[in-house]
Amino acid sequence: MKAVEANDLHKTFTSKKESVEAVKGVSFSVEQGEVFSILGPNGAGKSTTILMLTTLLGISKGTASIMGLDVEKQDKEVRTKIGVALQDTGIDLLLTARELLYTTGRLWGLNKKESNLRTEELLQLVGLTESADRRVKTYSGGMKRRLDLGLSLVNEPEVLFLDEPTTGLDPASRRVIWDEIKRLNNNGVTVILTTQYLEEADELSDRLLIIDKGVVATEGTSDELKASVGGDVVTFDFEKEENVEVAKRLIDNAKVNQKQLRITVENGAEHIPIFMKTFTENKLNVKSVSANKPTLDDVFLKVTGFSMENDNQSEKKQSKKSNYEKRGRRIRR
């Protein structure tokens, strides 16, 4: 039995003025015990897909099942199998972590004693025992995320959905959450997560799915996806940044990313002198050159035409409000 099966999922939001098809036929399956990441730019449809799978949004067309249970027809049973920590799922800031975990346990049908026990277990699991009796409004972003994770585990879910679990966190807090996810997965919990961070997807996932414009762009293991790009990625920096566009016109299949020229070829090191000769003949002075194996960003660039890294750079220039966001590589369009 698959942990998750999505078949031709569609979601259309209809208002008086317009109709928007956010998801246009997404299909995938997740084996039990896997960590499965869904990547995509903002507005790609990944959160909408998660909302449909977690029974929080109706499915316009298609079918989905969790642990063999139909998401639409057996929604109540599905909820007992899943844990959900969504981007916009809130935590009551006026209550303490202990009160929230206890209350959630009681709402899941635990009696007072069971709920107290589960609260203690989860406080320990997410490392909040010492701050358990402080109001959540005094918590750091990382502590809130850990609490959110704890709340999603109260019912001992078999499948855990995490929507951007580390967005906005500093690297240290992000690492703590990753360790929790790995530990849960080692205990047999299937994890489906969406993320804006490539390194997160690379670090945690058994398999990845990239969604773009509401459809599946590609799917596979991190290594499979990188291999699908083929060969090496040769990257050129030019002394005059504006020359990158001129250089692009000289080389077949070259792409511009972050004012760098990126060319995917077999045996990249062997090709570098040939490219250099072409640029020198055209008076384009190269500042630096490197040849590397493809990264997930190259995969992303190939299948969506957009770069996560590039986008993160432009965001850095636009906004200095979040140091956390500057450190991560985010997807935006």
Partner: peptide
């Protein structure tokens, strides 16, 4: 607005 409502909707309440 805080998302607590959505959390409850994902539970058997």
């Amino acid at each position: 607005e805080s998302g607590v409502f959505k959390r409850y909707q994902g539970m058997p309440i």
